[in-house]
């Protein structure tokens, strides 16, 4: 495969989508929802049948210390990009700290496998070119789901090409071509293995996984852009839904809650008992089936 082909593909795709976006209306939250949902389903299938089994096998056979080491290694390589973006965002003090982190982990941390910087109080910062573009005033544009890559925005699409170009992991093919594929593969595997917790949470909590992922992603990116600053004048909080505007029905339920609370508790208690009954019934069916077969 041609060197840095993945960077070029992202760049080309982003270029095409950006030109489309130029005529898209800013006010529409998710103008490509139909396309995005299809891509989301495609990515879910790929994850279910390919990525998840490989990542689960990797987690099962790899000792924890080695998984942590691999995570630290790729995280350390990412810090080249973090330092560059610190400077581009004029965060000079933070860039000095991140440079120290990178140097310390690359040397005393045995090439990044051990995160020694954490133990001397140099915290990991999260910066990328998308955040830099946000600081420079570039609007995020519409939400996009890219095949195999996942959630993005029109702005983060070209930004990720820049990030890939400034990550040493992308240049693993320079010393010898045969180590390029394993390094890229390990990077992807490490990322998937570390996303397991978040994916499990989405499966448990989301009622519409596409919407849940989109909103979480956009809010998470916004949080990174603002360095964790909370929007004190949240639009939803500002809504004029005061007690008077709540209809009597909404409020009645609140008042009646104490009297119904007891019945909810007993229902909750019965869940455990019902689950046990089902389990016992299932066991009996299995036994009956076994004896019938004999």
């Amino acid at each position: 495969m041609e060197k840095y082909a993945h960077i070029k593909i992202i760049g080309l795709a982003c270029g095409a989508m950006l030109s489309v976006n130029a005529i898209a209306k800013e006010k529409v939250a998710d103008p490509y929802e139909s396309f995005n949902r299809k891509m989301y389903e495609f990515n879910e299938s790929v994850d279910h049948y390919v990525a998840a089994p490989i990542a689960n096998s990797y987690k099962a056979v790899t000792p924890n210390f080695l998984q942590t080491g691999v995570f630290n290694f790729f995280n350390n390589l990412k810090n080249f990009n973090v330092v560059i973006n610190d400077v581009l965002q004029a965060k000079f003090s933070q860039s000095a700290s991140d440079m120290g982190r990178l140097t310390m982990n690359s040397t005393a941390g045995l090439g990044g496998f051990i995160d020694v910087a954490k133990h001397v109080g140099l915290e990991q910062n999260d910066e990328d070119f998308d955040q830099t573009l946000a600081v420079w005033g570039v609007p995020k544009g519409s939400y996009l789901v890219m095949p195999l890559i996942g959630p993005m925005t029109m702005r983060s699409c070209p930004a990720s090409a820049f990030d890939a170009a400034t990550n040493p992991a992308s240049y693993a093919s320079i010393p010898a071509n045969y180590i390029s594929a394993p390094v890229q593969f390990m990077g992807a595997l490490n990322a998937r293995a570390n996303a397991e917790g978040a994916l499990k949470f989405i499966n448990e909590a989301a009622m519409d996984k596409y919407v849940f992922t989109r909103e979480s992603f956009l809010q998470w990116r916004k949080n990174l852009e603002t360095d964790g600053k909370v929007n004190m004048d949240d639009d939803l909080m500002s809504e004029s839904i005061d007690d008077a505007s709540l209809t009597q029905n909404w409020r009645d339920y609140g008042k009646q809650f104490e009297s119904t609370a007891q019945s909810f508790s007993s229902v909750a208690r019965q869940f455990d008992q019902t689950a046990k009954t089902y389990e016992q019934a299932s066991h009996k069916i299995d036994q009956a089936r076994t004896s019938h077969t004999k």
Binding site: F212, Q219, W220, V230, D234, L236
Partner: peptide
């Protein structure tokens, strides 16, 4: 939680 609003979600 970590920048993600439960209400908005």
């Amino acid at each position: 939680a970590n920048g993600v609003s439960d209400l908005a979600l």
